[in-house]
Simulated assay, not measured.
Amino acid sequence: MPSPLSSLRSRLARAGDFGRKTSPILRRVPPMHVLLELAARVGYGARGFVYLSVGVLTLLAAADLIGDAVGPKGAIAWMALRPFGRLWLLLLGLGLAAFVMWRLLQAVFDADHEGTGRQGLNTRMSQGFSAMGYGFLAFNTFGLLVHTPSDPAATDITKSHEQAATVLSLPFGHWLLAGAGLCILGIGIANISRSWREDFTQYLACSPKTCRWVAPLARAGYLARGLAYLPLGTLVVLAGLRPAASEVTSFGSALDAVERQPAGPWILALAALGFIAFGTFSFIEARFRRIRPPRDLNPLT
């Protein structure tokens, strides 16, 4: 017996076929799987643009050519203050929304055919958390269209303090905040682990020669992203254990804390190069990744 989602998809497909037969305009619209593939590739490109921007700005910060290092939200806010900033925000927000849609297709409807085994479900759960993270980033990007603060970095830290204070005011709030920090540490460790154990070329439709130089980019990118989460997660855990909301900071401020350590600028420069590698790999995924939109919207297949 077909699932309700499958039945709904069949009805929508029949409606689309009928519309194409009766309307010259609709006949020009590509099939749904083509549109979904295009949206996924645009999404990977948007992710690449964000991390490439983070890497370049962090590298400039390490060289003391600009003020502070930034995370993804900081890089987007920085672009918002540039000429044509609102246009960039609109395009980037739409691209990130497309990436969230693709992540949901991967996580819920198994677009990558990971299956329902232990490893497959772990991968799909990771893709689901990724959808949540990029969903918040897309929401923040659209929010900047309404109001762009004059000092985005300070505003980001203030919001972090307020959110931490709200959590600490809840019953067992200090444990909840420490748990959130452990989750951030877990994300960092998962990225580090993924950087050396995963075959990043298995989803790419590129030549063996191209894949040989693509894989190191992916490993460097995931390693840098994972290491960047560790200081932020540590600060959040300490804020929960002490407890002190003022110790919760932003992604960019955590990178600044790394820069203040011995050999910090060099470490920050290496992290920046890793972010640039991750952004570059995302652009490569936008071009070469195998995109297979699910034909059957059934979460259990």
Rank of each mutant, 00 (worst) to 15 (best):
P243H: 00
E37F: 02
L230W: 14
F278R: 13
I157M: 03
S150M: 05
F18Y: 00
S160G: 13
G128V: 02
V248H: 09
G115D: 07
R212G: 00
L57I: 08
A286D: 04
L270P: 05
V54Y: 07
G186Y: 11
T148P: 08
F84Q: 12
L204E: 07
A272G: 09
G143E: 13
F109E: 02
G179D: 07
A80C: 11
F275I: 10
L300M: 15
V237F: 08
T148E: 08
L38M: 07
A271P: 00
R194L: 10
D256C: 12
G240Q: 07
R289L: 05
L235A: 13
E114P: 09
L177F: 09
A40Y: 01
Y44W: 14
L185I: 15
G226W: 08
L168N: 05
Y44I: 01
F129E: 01
R260V: 08
G67Q: 10
R103S: 08
G45A: 09
I25H: 14
G133E: 05
F99I: 03
L104A: 08
P293I: 05
F251S: 12
P149C: 10
F278Y: 15
N191T: 06
G173N: 08
A164Q: 06
E285A: 00
Q127P: 01
R14T: 00
F139V: 12
W78M: 07
P31N: 12
A263D: 04
D156V: 01
G120Q: 09
L94F: 14
A178Y: 14
R9A: 15
F172K: 14
A224F: 05
K21I: 00
L230H: 13
H33K: 12
A180C: 12
A153D: 12
F283Y: 13
L65M: 10
A228I: 06
H174Q: 11
L87T: 09
T148W: 04
F109P: 05
W78H: 15
L65F: 11
A220R: 11
R82F: 02
L36K: 07
L227S: 11
W78Q: 12
G133T: 06
T301E: 15
F142E: 05
G48D: 02
G240F: 05
D151G: 01
P208R: 00
L227A: 15
C211N: 02
L144D: 06
G93H: 10
L60P: 01
A63S: 09
F283G: 04
L12G: 02
S6A: 13
H174K: 12
I76M: 10
L52K: 10
A277C: 11
F200I: 02
C183M: 14
K209A: 05
R103D: 01
G252F: 02
R118D: 02
V146W: 15
K21T: 02
I66H: 04
I192M: 14
V108W: 12
G67F: 04
G252M: 06
M125E: 11
A245F: 05
T166Q: 13
L270G: 09
